[in-house]
Lab assay of single mutants.
Amino acid sequence: DESNKPILLPNESQSFERSVQLLDQIPSYDTHKIAVLYVGEGQSNSELAILSNEHGSYRYTEFLTGLGRLIELKDCQPDKVYLGGLDVCGEDGQFTYCWHDDIMQAVFHIATLMPTKDVDKHRCDKKRHLGNDFVSIVYNDSGEDFKLGTIKGQFNFVHVIVTPLDYECNLVSLQCRKDMEGLVDTSVAKIVSDRNLPFVARQMALHANMASQVHHSRSNPTDIYPSKWIARLRHIKRLRQRICEEAAYSNPSLPLVHPPSHSKAPAQTPAEPTPGYEVGQRKRLISSVEDFTE
Protein backbone atom coordinates (compact mmCIF):
# COMPACT_ATOMS: atom_id res chain seq x y z
CA ASP A 1 0.00 0.00 0.00
CA GLU A 2 1.66 3.20 -1.23
CA SER A 3 -0.15 5.34 1.32
CA ASN A 4 1.59 3.58 4.22
CA LYS A 5 5.15 3.62 2.89
CA PRO A 6 7.65 5.97 4.55
CA ILE A 7 8.52 9.06 2.53
CA LEU A 8 11.65 11.20 2.40
CA LEU A 9 11.37 14.56 4.10
CA PRO A 10 12.55 17.65 2.22
CA ASN A 11 16.00 18.89 3.19
CA GLU A 12 15.21 22.57 2.85
CA SER A 13 11.61 23.69 2.93
CA GLN A 14 10.34 26.68 4.88
CA SER A 15 6.74 25.49 4.69
CA PHE A 16 7.77 22.11 6.10
CA GLU A 17 9.67 23.76 8.96
CA ARG A 18 6.66 25.94 9.76
CA SER A 19 4.39 22.90 9.80
CA VAL A 20 6.70 21.07 12.20
CA GLN A 21 6.81 24.11 14.46
CA LEU A 22 3.02 24.22 14.40
CA LEU A 23 2.93 20.53 15.31
CA ASP A 24 5.12 21.30 18.32
CA GLN A 25 2.43 23.72 19.50
CA ILE A 26 -0.19 20.95 19.63
CA PRO A 27 0.44 19.01 22.85
CA SER A 28 0.08 15.25 22.94
CA TYR A 29 -2.34 15.50 25.87
CA ASP A 30 -5.67 17.26 26.40
CA THR A 31 -5.60 20.49 28.40
CA HIS A 32 -8.19 22.06 30.69
CA LYS A 33 -8.26 25.27 32.72
CA ILE A 34 -10.80 25.56 35.52
CA ALA A 35 -11.59 28.63 37.62
CA VAL A 36 -12.03 28.26 41.40
CA LEU A 37 -13.92 30.92 43.39
CA TYR A 38 -14.63 31.30 47.10
CA VAL A 39 -17.89 33.03 48.09
CA GLY A 40 -17.96 34.23 51.68
CA GLU A 41 -20.84 35.40 53.86
CA GLY A 42 -22.84 38.19 52.24
CA GLN A 43 -20.92 37.95 48.95
CA SER A 44 -23.28 35.89 46.79
CA ASN A 45 -24.30 38.88 44.64
CA SER A 46 -21.03 40.84 44.64
CA GLU A 47 -18.49 40.08 41.94
CA LEU A 48 -16.00 42.56 43.41
CA ALA A 49 -16.19 41.04 46.89
CA ILE A 50 -15.71 37.51 45.55
CA LEU A 51 -12.69 38.49 43.46
CA SER A 52 -11.21 40.41 46.40
CA ASN A 53 -11.04 37.35 48.67
CA GLU A 54 -7.48 36.43 49.61
CA HIS A 55 -8.37 33.33 51.63
CA GLY A 56 -11.32 31.13 52.52
CA SER A 57 -12.49 28.84 55.27
CA TYR A 58 -10.55 25.88 56.65
CA ARG A 59 -12.76 23.41 54.74
CA TYR A 60 -12.19 25.39 51.55
CA THR A 61 -8.42 25.20 52.06
CA GLU A 62 -8.65 21.44 52.60
CA PHE A 63 -10.70 21.19 49.42
CA LEU A 64 -7.99 22.97 47.43
CA THR A 65 -5.28 20.59 48.64
CA GLY A 66 -7.29 17.66 47.27
CA LEU A 67 -7.87 19.19 43.83
CA GLY A 68 -4.32 18.57 42.67
CA ARG A 69 -0.65 19.17 43.31
CA LEU A 70 0.59 22.53 44.58
CA ILE A 71 3.17 23.98 42.19
CA GLU A 72 5.33 27.09 42.28
CA LEU A 73 4.80 28.99 39.06
CA LYS A 74 8.35 30.28 38.72
CA ASP A 75 9.65 26.70 38.58
CA CYS A 76 7.31 25.65 35.76
CA GLN A 77 8.28 25.27 32.13
CA PRO A 78 5.20 26.22 30.07
CA ASP A 79 6.13 23.71 27.35
CA LYS A 80 5.94 20.87 29.89
CA VAL A 81 3.35 22.06 32.43
CA TYR A 82 0.09 23.50 31.15
CA LEU A 83 -0.64 26.76 33.01
CA GLY A 84 -3.56 28.12 30.99
CA GLY A 85 -1.93 31.52 30.51
CA LEU A 86 -0.68 32.09 34.08
CA ASP A 87 2.44 34.24 34.30
CA VAL A 88 5.54 32.54 35.73
CA CYS A 89 7.16 35.78 36.91
CA GLY A 90 4.75 36.50 39.77
CA GLU A 91 2.15 38.63 37.98
CA ASP A 92 -0.57 36.03 38.70
CA GLY A 93 0.68 34.88 42.09
CA GLN A 94 3.30 32.49 43.37
CA PHE A 95 1.43 29.18 43.51
CA THR A 96 -1.45 27.29 41.96
CA TYR A 97 -2.77 23.73 41.82
CA CYS A 98 -2.60 21.41 38.83
CA TRP A 99 -3.62 17.84 38.12
CA HIS A 100 -2.77 15.34 35.40
CA ASP A 101 -3.18 11.74 34.34
CA ASP A 102 -1.87 9.82 31.33
CA ILE A 103 -3.91 11.73 28.75
CA MET A 104 -4.69 15.18 30.13
CA GLN A 105 -3.44 18.10 32.20
CA ALA A 106 -5.62 20.52 34.15
CA VAL A 107 -4.68 23.78 35.83
CA PHE A 108 -6.86 25.59 38.36
CA HIS A 109 -7.10 29.37 38.23
CA ILE A 110 -7.73 30.01 41.92
CA ALA A 111 -8.88 33.52 42.76
CA THR A 112 -7.66 33.42 46.37
CA LEU A 113 -4.12 32.51 45.25
CA MET A 114 -3.90 35.42 42.82
CA PRO A 115 -2.64 38.77 44.13
CA THR A 116 -5.25 41.39 45.04
CA LYS A 117 -3.68 44.67 43.93
CA ASP A 118 -4.74 48.04 45.35
CA VAL A 119 -4.25 49.71 41.97
CA ASP A 120 -6.57 47.17 40.31
CA LYS A 121 -9.88 48.39 41.75
CA HIS A 122 -12.05 46.20 39.53
CA ARG A 123 -9.85 43.08 39.81
CA CYS A 124 -9.29 43.00 36.06
CA ASP A 125 -6.03 41.06 36.48
CA LYS A 126 -7.96 38.19 38.03
CA LYS A 127 -10.89 38.44 35.63
CA ARG A 128 -8.72 38.11 32.54
CA HIS A 129 -8.14 34.51 33.63
CA LEU A 130 -11.32 33.65 35.55
CA GLY A 131 -13.64 35.35 33.05
CA ASN A 132 -12.18 33.40 30.13
CA ASP A 133 -12.48 29.93 31.67
CA PHE A 134 -15.41 27.87 30.42
CA VAL A 135 -16.03 26.21 33.79
CA SER A 136 -15.82 27.53 37.36
CA ILE A 137 -15.90 25.64 40.64
CA VAL A 138 -17.72 27.90 43.10
CA TYR A 139 -17.23 27.12 46.79
CA ASN A 140 -20.35 28.86 48.11
CA ASP A 141 -19.90 29.53 51.83
CA SER A 142 -22.34 32.45 51.85
CA GLY A 143 -25.44 30.59 53.01
CA GLU A 144 -27.32 32.07 50.03
CA ASP A 145 -27.99 30.93 46.48
CA PHE A 146 -25.29 31.73 43.93
CA LYS A 147 -26.55 32.65 40.48
CA LEU A 148 -24.91 32.08 37.14
CA GLY A 149 -23.75 35.42 35.76
CA THR A 150 -22.61 36.91 39.07
CA ILE A 151 -19.08 36.75 37.70
CA LYS A 152 -19.25 38.51 34.34
CA GLY A 153 -17.48 36.87 31.43
CA GLN A 154 -18.09 35.87 27.83
CA PHE A 155 -17.08 32.24 28.31
CA ASN A 156 -18.53 31.29 31.71
CA PHE A 157 -20.59 28.36 30.43
CA VAL A 158 -20.86 26.11 33.51
CA HIS A 159 -20.60 26.48 37.30
CA VAL A 160 -19.94 23.54 39.62
CA ILE A 161 -21.51 24.81 42.86
CA VAL A 162 -20.18 23.39 46.14
CA THR A 163 -22.30 24.23 49.18
CA PRO A 164 -20.79 23.02 52.50
CA LEU A 165 -23.24 21.33 54.88
CA ASP A 166 -23.06 19.98 58.41
CA TYR A 167 -21.43 16.67 59.34
CA GLU A 168 -18.56 17.14 56.85
CA CYS A 169 -20.88 16.84 53.85
CA ASN A 170 -21.43 19.05 50.82
CA LEU A 171 -24.14 19.64 48.24
CA VAL A 172 -22.70 19.64 44.71
CA SER A 173 -24.82 20.88 41.80
CA LEU A 174 -24.38 22.25 38.28
CA GLN A 175 -25.51 25.48 36.67
CA CYS A 176 -25.10 26.20 32.97
CA ARG A 177 -26.17 28.65 30.31
CA LYS A 178 -29.31 27.84 28.36
CA ASP A 179 -27.38 27.02 25.20
CA MET A 180 -25.45 24.34 27.14
CA GLU A 181 -28.44 22.50 28.58
CA GLY A 182 -28.29 19.78 25.93
CA LEU A 183 -24.74 18.84 26.94
CA VAL A 184 -24.76 19.27 30.71
CA ASP A 185 -27.20 17.57 33.08
CA THR A 186 -28.16 20.07 35.77
CA SER A 187 -31.09 18.09 37.15
CA VAL A 188 -29.20 15.94 39.67
CA ALA A 189 -27.49 17.25 42.80
CA LYS A 190 -25.11 15.13 44.86
CA ILE A 191 -24.33 14.88 48.58
CA VAL A 192 -20.59 14.30 48.90
CA SER A 193 -18.30 13.98 51.91
CA ASP A 194 -15.41 16.39 52.47
CA ARG A 195 -13.01 13.54 51.78
CA ASN A 196 -14.42 12.77 48.33
CA LEU A 197 -15.37 16.32 47.38
CA PRO A 198 -12.15 17.26 45.49
CA PHE A 199 -12.37 14.18 43.26
CA VAL A 200 -16.07 14.59 42.47
CA ALA A 201 -15.85 18.34 41.83
CA ARG A 202 -12.77 17.92 39.64
CA GLN A 203 -14.35 15.19 37.52
CA MET A 204 -17.57 17.15 37.09
CA ALA A 205 -15.58 20.23 36.09
CA LEU A 206 -13.46 18.31 33.57
CA HIS A 207 -16.50 16.70 31.95
CA ALA A 208 -18.26 20.07 31.81
CA ASN A 209 -15.19 21.69 30.29
CA MET A 210 -14.99 19.05 27.56
CA ALA A 211 -18.65 19.66 26.75
CA SER A 212 -17.97 23.41 26.71
CA GLN A 213 -15.10 22.96 24.27
CA VAL A 214 -17.39 21.02 21.95
CA HIS A 215 -20.05 23.70 22.28
CA HIS A 216 -17.57 26.49 21.61
CA SER A 217 -16.27 24.72 18.49
CA ARG A 218 -19.66 25.27 16.82
CA SER A 219 -18.38 28.70 15.78
CA ASN A 220 -16.32 26.82 13.18
CA PRO A 221 -18.59 24.00 11.94
CA THR A 222 -15.97 22.66 9.52
CA ASP A 223 -13.56 21.84 12.37
CA ILE A 224 -15.22 19.43 14.77
CA TYR A 225 -13.65 19.22 18.21
CA PRO A 226 -11.04 16.45 18.48
CA SER A 227 -8.78 15.44 21.32
CA LYS A 228 -5.31 16.96 21.09
CA TRP A 229 -3.62 13.74 19.98
CA ILE A 230 -6.15 13.28 17.19
CA ALA A 231 -5.47 16.88 16.16
CA ARG A 232 -1.76 15.99 15.98
CA LEU A 233 -2.54 12.92 13.87
CA ARG A 234 -4.63 14.96 11.44
CA HIS A 235 -1.86 17.57 11.17
CA ILE A 236 0.76 14.88 10.43
CA LYS A 237 -1.45 13.32 7.74
CA ARG A 238 -2.03 16.72 6.09
CA LEU A 239 1.71 17.37 6.18
CA ARG A 240 2.46 14.00 4.58
CA GLN A 241 -0.03 14.61 1.79
CA ARG A 242 1.41 18.06 1.06
CA ILE A 243 4.97 16.69 0.89
CA CYS A 244 3.83 13.98 -1.54
CA GLU A 245 2.10 16.55 -3.74
CA GLU A 246 5.15 18.84 -3.77
CA ALA A 247 7.43 15.91 -4.63
CA ALA A 248 5.15 14.83 -7.49
CA TYR A 249 5.04 18.39 -8.82
CA SER A 250 8.83 18.71 -8.85
CA ASN A 251 9.30 15.19 -10.27
CA PRO A 252 6.30 14.11 -12.37
CA SER A 253 7.67 10.57 -12.71
CA LEU A 254 6.91 9.92 -9.04
CA PRO A 255 3.47 8.54 -8.22
CA LEU A 256 1.19 10.82 -6.25
CA VAL A 257 0.17 9.14 -3.02
CA HIS A 258 -3.45 9.54 -2.08
CA PRO A 259 -5.29 8.16 0.92
CA PRO A 260 -6.99 4.86 0.09
CA SER A 261 -10.52 5.20 -1.21
CA HIS A 262 -13.22 2.62 -0.81
CA SER A 263 -14.89 1.94 -4.16
CA LYS A 264 -17.49 -0.35 -2.68
CA ALA A 265 -20.74 1.49 -2.15
CA PRO A 266 -22.00 1.43 1.41
CA ALA A 267 -24.93 -0.79 2.15
CA GLN A 268 -28.29 0.95 2.13
CA THR A 269 -29.76 1.33 5.58
CA PRO A 270 -33.23 2.48 6.54
CA ALA A 271 -33.48 6.21 7.04
CA GLU A 272 -33.30 7.29 10.65
CA PRO A 273 -34.91 10.36 12.16
CA THR A 274 -32.67 13.40 12.24
CA PRO A 275 -30.89 13.48 15.64
CA GLY A 276 -31.61 16.39 17.93
CA TYR A 277 -29.11 19.01 19.01
CA GLU A 278 -28.00 17.04 22.08
CA VAL A 279 -27.26 13.83 20.17
CA GLY A 280 -25.48 15.68 17.39
CA GLN A 281 -23.24 17.55 19.79
CA ARG A 282 -22.31 14.45 21.74
CA LYS A 283 -21.35 12.63 18.55
CA ARG A 284 -18.77 15.34 17.94
CA LEU A 285 -16.83 13.95 20.89
CA ILE A 286 -16.29 10.73 18.94
CA SER A 287 -13.50 10.49 16.38
CA SER A 288 -14.15 9.36 12.86
CA VAL A 289 -12.77 5.99 11.80
CA GLU A 290 -11.01 7.77 8.91
CA ASP A 291 -8.69 9.36 11.49
CA PHE A 292 -7.04 5.98 11.92
CA THR A 293 -7.42 4.28 8.52
CA GLU A 294 -6.46 6.95 5.99
Rank of each mutant, 00 (worst) to 15 (best):
F157P: 02
D30I: 04
V36F: 00
H122A: 13
Q14V: 12
T96P: 03
E62Q: 09
K126G: 04
D102N: 06
L254D: 15
F108V: 01
R240L: 04
K237P: 07
K121Y: 13
Q268G: 11
G90K: 08
R128A: 09
A49V: 02
E245W: 14
G131W: 15
A201V: 10
T150F: 03
F134Y: 04
E278V: 08
I286K: 13
L73G: 12
S142L: 01
T116S: 14
A49L: 07
A248H: 08
R232P: 12
A201I: 04
A189G: 07
V135A: 02
R242C: 15
P275F: 10
L67K: 00
C169I: 05
V279I: 09
L37Y: 14
F95C: 05
N11I: 10
G68R: 05
R18K: 11
I151G: 03
I110T: 04
T61E: 07
C98A: 11
K127R: 15
Q14A: 12
N156A: 06
I151T: 03
L51E: 03
H159I: 10
M104K: 02
P260T: 14
G66W: 00
L206G: 00
R128F: 09
L51G: 03
N196P: 01
N196Y: 04
N45K: 10
E41F: 08
V119K: 11
Y249T: 09
P270W: 09
Q268D: 12
C98S: 06
V107I: 08
G42Q: 03
C76Q: 11
Q94D: 07
M180K: 04
L23E: 12
E41Y: 12
L37T: 02
F16R: 05
V135L: 00
N140W: 00
R69K: 13
V88D: 09
A49H: 03
I7E: 09
Q213M: 11
G68D: 02
V188Y: 06
R284K: 14
F155H: 11
Y139S: 00
S142F: 01
E12A: 05
N251M: 13
V81I: 12
I230V: 14
H235R: 07
H258D: 15
E62T: 05
N220C: 08
L206C: 04
R218S: 08
L256K: 15
L37R: 01
D101H: 02
D166N: 03
T269W: 12
V200S: 01
L8T: 12
L23W: 07
V188P: 14
R123W: 13
K80W: 11
A267E: 12
Q77N: 15
R232I: 03
M114S: 05
S193C: 04
G93I: 09
D145M: 04
H122R: 08
S44G: 08
R238V: 12
K121A: 09
V158W: 01
D166I: 01
H129F: 13
I230W: 07
S15M: 09
D145C: 04
G149W: 03
E12F: 06
P221A: 06
R232A: 08
S219W: 08
H159R: 03
I26L: 12
S15N: 08
P198Q: 00
I191A: 02
T61Y: 11
M204P: 00
G40L: 00
D75G: 12
D24W: 03
M210G: 01
C124E: 15
S46N: 14
R128W: 08
K152W: 09
R218E: 10
D141W: 00
L171V: 13
D92Q: 13
K33A: 13
R128L: 07
